[in-house]
């Protein structure tokens, strides 16, 4: 039995210890926001936070999170309001198919946590492990910078007040 914290709740599982965290979170705990993209830690669709650090969970065995705290996209904003990144994602109409976006947002959120005012290069480095096949990169970059401390979230946003 492996015990850990999932979005602030204590949970336990008897899945095999080598089962990747992603599948336990999705299929045992039914949190479907984190996605399967490559199964090899190459695309970042499965990104969650382990004790606040962005981590690819499709290659992380569930045994590795015992006693630690895991946060998924569903638990990103503890107070139930949208995270500034999620507001920015709408303001810049970032998603296309949307499949990679949970991972993109989790990587970006970890970046802003450790570096509230990233440069463009910082954003590119932090999100280098997240593939978007639809080609949302220019908007992702703009949205992360807008959600940063000095970004001015609604500056240049398209009719954001109507939609947010």
């Amino acid at each position: 039995m492996i015990e850990f914290e999932l979005n602030g709740q204590k949970v336990k599982t008897d899945e095999a210890p080598d089962t990747p965290v992603l599948w336990v979170v999705r299929d045992t705990f039914k949190l479907m926001g984190s996605k399967f993209g490559c199964g090899a830690g190459l695309c970042g669709a499965c990104t969650m936070h382990l004790d606040g650090v962005a981590i690819k969970t499709c290659v992380l065995p569930i045994s590795a999170v015992a006693g630690q705290s895991l946060t998924t996209i569903e638990g990103l904003s503890a107070d139930g309001n949208l995270h500034p990144l999620q507001v920015a994602w709408q303001a810049y109409a970032v998603p296309q198919c949307g499949y990679c976006q949970s991972g993109q947002i989790m990587s970006a959120a970890a970046l802003l946590e450790s570096n509230p005012n990233p440069s463009e290069a910082d954003v590119e480095a932090a999100l280098a492990g997240n593939i978007c096949r639809c080609g949302c990169y220019p908007r992702i970059k703009k949205a992360v910078l807008a959600a940063s401390e000095s970004g001015g979230l609604f500056k240049n946003a398209l009719a954001s007040e109507e939609r947010v």
Binding site: G33, V94, G98, S102, L158
Partner: peptide, 20 residues
């Protein structure tokens, strides 16, 4: 000029794909 009607669901993990 407007955004996308699916942007919110696709920013919160709520959008349902076949795999979900």
């Amino acid at each position: 000029e407007s955004g996308r009607v699916d942007a919110l669901a696709k920013s919160t993990g709520a959008a349902v794909f076949g795999i979900d």
